[in-house]
Design a protein around this nucleic acid. Structure first.
Lengths: 201, 201
DNA sequence: TAGATTGTTAATCGATTAACAATC
DNA sequence: TAGATTGTTAATCGATTAACAATC
């Protein structure tokens, strides 16, 4: 029995691993896991399991982890600074290639080795750095305006951290990250715990 | 026809609204919406729609928005500072009641009107401020250690922003927010766009 | 009343999983 | 070969939605 520590993506090449082992580690059913892996093609070996190296290679490819996408981070307030330093990006194939802000006091400063550039230069930055994804960490009030400029520069994937809903043309993908939503889910469970405790009393 | 702007929760009391209108605004099927609302009980009026004021009241109650939960924010680096200033919390019934850090240089400073207190005081803070939820915005390396202390102080709901998986006893709820996960989903769509463009060429 | 809209049933759809033939 | 494990089928489960009786 091999022991997997940490997320599946971190698994070291230890030979092979069975769907059952992966399923236990991931907390899912082994049939589901096999079905999901079969999406990549038949890379498992019956009676043996999956070759870890092959699996990592195939998964990385399919998930686009081998491409190292260039991301532009727009807005360098506290949230932007936090995202610039967030550990989870590089390991998943994202490279923060450009930092953008509208505040002249921030433009020209250096954050984590990158010079902050003005939003007016964004079109040039997109070309230069081959930006495919923009991350919005701007104030809610500025979100739509900045989003429009981003779309105008041909970027078609946007991750929106601003607490505002933005509208975009149909060919553009926007994902909104709502930092309060998770808290709300927790709170809902907490209410139920309280109700349960009340019922027992 | 009434026009709803922004998320449903922000709807101003304009009299009544139909399930169809709400469904269009929320981008879901009207039958689904009616079924979900019926979970609250029968508060709609046949042939008329839903009274907006009643609906807001019932929803707020059920989602725990009327309770104004006291949240402790632990870790005041960039991410912590960003969360402290995040607009989405208050409107959803969360009050950041305490700020906690381990760095003596941060302890005692004031952030958004709250004095930052040392993690060693956490047990007292929980009692004093009636904390029910802890938000972890600490470095990955410290996450498990801090989490253990939080659990030891009797907090049973934790929102983890640290890029690390923490383990807790079964009676504790942890939700992990992975800021890179959303980016990865976008990236996956982006890969498919590129593949599609390639196929057309 | 006639028109509109809810609340709910029954049908549909998709996702999950147990089971097992294929095969290493 | 015998044991193990995959890949996939068929069954199950749950969620979504169309349809409509109830009723304002």
């Amino acid at each position: 029995m091999r022991v997997l520590t940490g997320p599946i993506g971190d698994a070291r090449p230890l030979g092979t691993v069975s769907s059952e082992e992966l399923a236990v580690a991931a907390g899912v059913n082994s049939a589901t896991l096999r079905k999901d892996l079969s999406f990549l093609g038949s890379y498992g070996i019956r009676g043996v399991g999956y070759d870890v190296a092959t699996l990592v290679e195939r998964l990385s490819c399919t998930l686009g982890l081998t491409e190292h996408r260039a991301v532009a981070l727009i807005g360098l307030g506290n949230l932007g600074q936090a995202l610039a330093g967030y550990g989870g990006f590089a390991s998943r194939g994202f490279r923060i290639a450009a930092l953008i802000d509208a505040d002249p006091r921030r433009v020209g400063t250096t954050v984590r080795g990158l010079r902050v550039r003005h939003i007016d230069e964004f079109e040039a930055v997109v070309d230069e750095c081959r930006i495919t994804i923009a991350v919005l960490a701007v104030p809610a009030i500025a979100a739509q305006r900045v989003c429009d400029r981003v779309v105008a520069c041909g970027v078609t994937s946007i991750l929106n951290f601003a607490p505002a809903v933005v509208s975009v043309p149909p060919h553009v993908d926007v994902r909104k990250v709502d930092l309060a939503a998770e808290l709300q889910i927790l709170s809902f469970h907490e209410s139920r715990k309280a109700a349960l405790a009340g019922a027992r009393r």
